[in-house]
């Protein structure tokens, strides 16, 4: 007997033995070594599997036309939502992408077994069902992986962001005078971050002078010099003055040898002179007290 739709057998299997499938799915995960009992309690795993399978069934029931489906479709909203939650949790607990994919793929075995029993010996029907389940579960797994990796990238991005912020403090030295002590290496990502951070602070504090101190920057090659000059140019565009301080004799020699033209940017060898010049610009002088 031919079923009325391509998904009829799969839905029958899911409806008649929903619980059994979940248990066996869990079992397969244990066997494949991807059930992280160190990270999730049994009850938690069972609960996640139940929610996922429920949403998956709903998607199959409503979101498969003929043999075609698209997980981006509205009909699969539920599955995508549950999956997003599950992935987020798993990423945060340190599950690997392989474990995550194997976890989803482990759903095939319990479904195949039941379809086989249902098909009796109608091999062409079984073949058709197995092919459809395979496509569905594969799509499910691929989608899971995408979400999972996306989630991980977001975490990495957030951490990178936090690290960058930590390493580029903008300090208000005096009213309308900012300083940016640069330390370590200045690559493109960091230079960009430094620049954004600096410009935002200029706006907030209405700073008129900015001292970029490069005493702590190990090497100044053409690229680093370019980054510095670009930052200085952006500072000037915003209407503030930029002084680059901490240019050691060695760095000065390198810069000249590299043919780097600092143009109109002011430079000072030490932060000391930069500071007194900056203060002078905003109307202050550093004076020795009489008592000394």
């Amino acid at each position: 007997m031919m079923p009325q739709s391509a998904t009829a057998n799969i839905l029958t299997v899911l409806d008649t033995d929903f619980k059994g499938i979940i248990e066996e799915w869990l079992g397969t995960q244990v066997k494949e070594g991807v059930k992280r009992s160190d990270l999730f309690s049994d009850a938690e795993s069972r609960n996640q599997n139940r929610e996922l399978l429920k949403a998956f069934s709903k998607g199959i029931r409503e979101g498969v036309a003929g043999e075609d489906f698209d997980l981006d479709d509205d009909k699969w909203d539920d599955l995508r939502a549950v999956l997003a939650d599950v992935s987020r949790e798993r990423v945060n607990r340190g599950v690997t992408p392989t474990e995550m994919a194997t976890f989803v793929l482990a759903l095939k075995t319990p479904l195949f077994k039941r379809l086989e029993a249902l098909a009796d010996s109608d091999h062409s029907m079984l073949l058709r069902d197995v092919m459809l389940v395979t496509r569905l579960v594969d799509a499910f797994a691929i989608y899971t992986n995408e979400i999972f990796i996306n989630e991980r990238e977001q975490i990495i991005d957030r951490q990178r962001q936090e690290m960058l912020e930590l390493s580029t403090p903008v300090v208000e030295l005096w009213d309308r005078v900012l300083t940016l002590p640069l330390i370590g290496t200045l690559d493109s990502a960091r230079a960009q971050e430094v620049m954004e951070n600096l410009l935002q602070t200029i706006l907030e504090r209405q700073a008129e002078v900015v001292i970029m101190d490069i005493t702590g920057v190990g090497t100044v090659d053409t690229q680093v010099a370019q980054h510095l000059l670009r930052a200085a140019a952006a500072v000037r565009l915003m209407g503030a003055e930029c002084i680059i301080s901490g240019i050691s004799p060695m760095i000065a020699q390198t810069m000249v040898q590299l043919g780097i033209d600092v143009g109109t940017v002011s430079t000072r060898s030490s932060i000391r002179t930069a500071l007194s010049d900056a203060l002078l610009t905003v109307g202050y002088v550093i004076k020795k007290t009489e008592a000394q």
Binding site: Q192, M195, E196, L199, Q200, I202, L203, R230, A233, A234, V235, R236, L237, M238, G239, G263, T264
Partner: peptide, 17 residues
């Protein structure tokens, strides 16, 4: 000039001396 505009102009190579 907004900070974002300054960054973008510099990236475009427009330093407007």
């Amino acid at each position: 000039m907004r900070p974002t505009v300054a960054v973008t102009l510099v990236e475009l190579g427009m330093y407007l001396p």
